[in-house]
Simulated scan of single mutants.
Amino acid sequence: MKVGIMSDTHDNLEAIKLAVEYFNEEGVDLVLHAGDYVAPFVARELSKLSAPLKGVFGNNDGERKMLEEKLGIKDEILTLDIDGLKVVLLHGTDERVVEAFARSQMYDIVIRGHTHKYGIQEVGRTLIVNPGEVCGYITGIKSFAILNTREREIKIINLENREILGIMSI
């Protein structure tokens, strides 16, 4: 199973469009969004995904009722079983919460956003994955991640040139 992972889109419709095109080309089975859509009008681009979208709210998501209506987003923390992997998805505003999920060793993968900095970190048997920012506003790098459960790996990819920025086995 292939899972597209994104965060911090912050209303950048052109970048969202590129991410959606990539996910559709890759034939992902599911897309996870770790929050900070910002406004409900991003649903126009996200609705073009071929795969289902699951996500959580971020600290900049003010119009939550409309985001719930348009995208089905209603949680701040979401736990999932993805092809036998236990995954928790959150925005990650509070570092103590992110660290607690990782240290608990209850999850194979903790997916978070908020910092806008991409990275994969090991904490015991748990991976903390931050796909970075799709918007590219803070770091200047538009990035996202692909989780491939068959190959047991996660790749972080530069949205603009499709260069692999990081890769780790699960």
Score class of each variant (00 low, 15 high):
28 V>M: 00
69 E>V: 10
122 E>D: 12
99 E>T: 13
47 S>T: 10
150 R>P: 13
23 F>N: 01
158 N>H: 15
31 V>M: 01
111 I>G: 00
106 M>G: 14
22 Y>L: 14
10 H>I: 07
20 V>R: 00
86 K>M: 08
143 S>I: 07
30 L>R: 01
114 H>V: 09
22 Y>S: 13
148 N>V: 04
61 D>M: 07
102 A>S: 07
133 E>F: 08
64 R>W: 02
98 V>Q: 05
60 N>G: 14
91 H>G: 05
140 G>R: 13
153 E>T: 13
28 V>D: 00
43 A>C: 09
161 N>V: 14
82 I>L: 05
168 M>K: 14
77 I>T: 12
55 G>C: 06
110 V>L: 05
154 I>R: 04
141 I>N: 13
147 L>G: 03
41 F>Y: 11
17 K>D: 12
7 S>N: 03
91 H>V: 05
17 K>G: 07
144 F>I: 06
84 G>P: 02
98 V>P: 05
5 I>C: 01
115 T>E: 07
39 A>K: 14
36 D>L: 09
71 L>F: 08
68 E>C: 11
169 S>I: 14
169 S>E: 15
112 R>H: 11
154 I>Y: 09
70 K>S: 13
142 K>E: 10
37 Y>L: 11
159 L>H: 06
166 G>K: 08
169 S>V: 14
7 S>L: 02
91 H>R: 04
36 D>M: 07
3 V>D: 00
80 L>C: 04
73 I>R: 08
132 G>L: 03
117 K>T: 15
140 G>L: 12
146 I>Y: 02
81 D>V: 09
103 R>E: 15
14 E>N: 10
48 K>W: 11
90 L>Y: 04
5 I>P: 00
157 I>M: 07
115 T>I: 08
44 R>E: 12
6 M>A: 06
2 K>R: 10
68 E>P: 08
129 V>N: 00
147 L>C: 06
14 E>W: 10
34 A>F: 03
61 D>F: 06
145 A>H: 07
35 G>D: 06
64 R>G: 03
149 T>P: 06
88 V>E: 02
150 R>M: 13
156 I>S: 00
162 R>T: 13
26 E>S: 14
138 I>V: 15
95 E>S: 10
103 R>V: 11
31 V>I: 09
8 D>K: 03
29 D>Q: 06
142 K>D: 06
129 V>L: 05
148 N>E: 07
26 E>Q: 15
169 S>N: 15
27 G>V: 05
59 N>D: 11
99 E>W: 13
74 K>N: 10
74 K>Q: 08
50 S>L: 13
129 V>T: 01
82 I>K: 03
9 T>R: 01
13 L>D: 08
